[in-house]
Design a protein around this nucleic acid. Structure first.
Lengths: 147, 147
DNA sequence: TATTGTTATACTCTATAACTATA
DNA sequence: TATAGTTATAGAGTATAACAATA
C-alpha cells in the first residue's frame, strides 16, 4: 500500500545523497563556502536578512556572519530600509549578480540520473512532482500548491 | 526539449530544501548533531572508518571526531580489525542499534508532499526513479543500475 | 513592549598537512 | 614506500542568550 511511496522516497534520498559532492564542487568553483553559495543563489530582489534566515532555515544570528563574508568579498551589500530602519536589505552587487548567475546555471543543471531519462519519463517525473505541490524556497517565484 | 527534465530537477531541489528542517528535527529527537545522526543511520554491519568517510562524503580526518562523540555516548565502539591492525571497525552497541532504528524509522517516513500523492502517482514516481538508476549510499543493500 | 539585527559563547563540522603505527 | 587513522590548526556554520537601535 504505502510501499510505493516509501520506495520512491528512499530513491529520492539516495539521489539527494549524491548531491552533497555537487554542492562542494559548485561552491569551490566560485571560491565560496557552501552556505555563502546558497545565500547568493537565493538572492534576486533585495531582501531583509530575516527572510534569508528563513530561506536558509537557520537562526538569524548566523546570517550576520555569512553576510559579513559575502560583503567583504564585494558580492552583496547591506542597505538600511528607508521605511523601517531596523531592517537591512541585502542587495547583490554587479559582481555578486554575475557569481549568482554562474551558481544558478550549475545548480539547475540536472544530474546524470535525471538527464539520462527518456523524454517521456522526464515529463512523467515533472508532472508527478507538480502534483506533489512542493513550495519553492522564499525568494523564488513559483506558484505554491493551490488552496 | 530538455525543459521537462530541468523543471523536474527544480522541483526536486525544492523538495530537497524542505528536508533541511527534517534533518535537524530528527537529530534533535535523538539528541545528536546532524553528522553524528547520519553516521549512525548508515551503520549496519561493522565497517572500517574509511568506508564511513566515503559514505559521508567527507575527509577521513573528520570521522575521528564524529566517532569520538558517538563512542563517548556509548552508541558505537571501535574494534581493531584482526587481519589488518591499522583499520578500526565501527560497530554499533545495543543502545546504538536502538537509536539507529529510531532514526531510520523517521528518516524513511515519506514527507507530506510524497505521502499525499495518489497511489498511482506514487507508483509512477517510484518507477521513474528506479529507471534513473540511482546508486544507494555505501553500507546499504540495494541493486545498483544494471550494467 | 516588541522586533531586527548584532555580539558573545560554546560546540560541531570542514579540509589540509604532519604524524603514528602498521603493512 | 604506502595506507588507516590521528592530531593540530584554522576557518566556517550552528543555536542560545543577552544586547542595541528602532518601532
Amino acid at each position: 500500500m504505502k510501499t510505493a511511496g516509501r520506495e520512491a522516497w528512499t530513491l529520492l534520498l539516495d539521489l539527494w545523497g549524491t548531491q552533497r559532492s555537487r554542492v562542494s564542487a559548485i561552491a569551490g568553483e566560485v571560491d565560496l563556502a557552501p552556505r555563502q553559495m546558497h545565500l547568493l543563489r537565493l538572492l534576486d530582489e533585495p531582501l531583509p536578512m530575516s527572510r534569508l534566515a528563513s530561506a536558509l532555515r537557520c537562526d538569524p544570528s548566523n546570517v550576520t556572519g555569512i553576510v559579513d563574508r559575502l560583503e567583504e568579498r564585494g558580492l552583496i551589500e547591506r542597505r538600511t530600509a528607508p521605511d523601517d530602519r531596523r531592517v537591512k536589505m541585502l542587495a547583490l552587487t554587479a559582481e555578486g549578480a554575475r557569481v549568482r548567475d554562474r551558481i544558478r546555471e550549475r545548480w539547475l543543471e540536472p544530474p546524470e540520473a535525471i538527464a539520462s531519462l527518456s523524454a517521456k519519463d522526464q515529463r512523467a517525473l515533472r508532472d508527478v512532482l507538480r502534483r506533489a505541490g512542493v513550495s519553492p524556497a522564499p525568494g523564488r517565484k513559483g506558484s505554491p500548491r493551490p488552496s
